[in-house]
């Protein structure tokens, strides 16, 4: 057994365990942290496959941005996780059956001979995964790349459309409106006699 094999099995074991903990732990913050651990180990496995760009992107994007945001949300929202989990175990027979079916199916597929690579691909010494990806991304895969940008634009528009609203109780001010204000908008001068003589009312007589 080579050294890389040992590393792979260690990483894979940590990955599986942390993946399991993500769904079994009670505390959502712990679950998010276990997911971070799972991402780290997955990045390690990618590094073993010499896919260093994907590994770095996984850590930068998922661990650095997505999960941190997620942690913020989990910490800010006061979610009672026990309430959400009520009746969680009632689904066990159904989920167990489906899970077992999937394991059997995957086992059947994996047992197939032509899935096993005949030989490991050896890469030239100065091979750079990042450079190769960059080359195909901007030549062969230019169209899907541009389309992805349109998808992101639409996602941005949708997020703004669905969340931006003028609230009636909003206290925000528009400085331009404040500058433009005229005296007449704020103050109304009405003419009225300087002094009004109180009318003399005869006291009511008692009956």
């Amino acid at each position: 057994m080579m050294f890389t094999d040992v590393v792979f099995y260690v990483l894979a074991a940590i990955l599986l365990l942390s993946g399991l903990r993500v769904i079994t732990t009670r505390n959502p913050v712990h679950a998010a942290l276990f997911l971070v651990l799972a991402f780290f180990t997955a990045a390690g496995i990618w590094l073993l496959l010499q896919a260093e760009f994907l590994a770095i992107a996984l850590i930068l994007v998922y661990v650095g941005a997505v999960m941190v945001l997620f942690l913020f949300v989990v910490m800010m929202l006061d979610i009672n996780i026990d309430k959400l989990r009520e009746g969680f175990w009632e689904y066990l027979p159904m989920a167990g059956t489906i899970g077992l079916l999937m394991i059997v199916e995957m086992g059947m597929v994996l047992a197939e001979k032509n899935l096993r690579p005949s030989q490991a691909v050896t890469l030239p010494p100065n091979y750079s995964n990042t450079a190769e990806l960059g080359k195909v991304l901007y030549t062969d895969y230019l169209l899907p790349f541009e389309l992805a940008s349109v998808v992101l634009l639409v996602a941005m528009i949708a997020a703004i459309v669905l969340t931006l609203r003028d609230r009636k109780d909003s206290k925000s001010m528009n400085p331009a409106d404040q500058v433009k204000v005229k005296r007449n908008d704020r103050l109304r001068i009405i003419s009225m006699p300087a002094e009004v003589e109180p009318e003399h009312v005869a006291p009511e007589e008692e009956k």
Partner: peptide, 22 residues
């Protein structure tokens, strides 16, 4: 890949259109 990107673009627009009346 192109077909999938087109499908995602369409789906994203449809999801947000359904929620348009917030």
């Amino acid at each position: 890949l192109t077909i999938y990107m087109g499908l995602e673009l369409l789906s994203l627009c449809l999801y947000s259109l359904v929620a348009f009346d917030r």
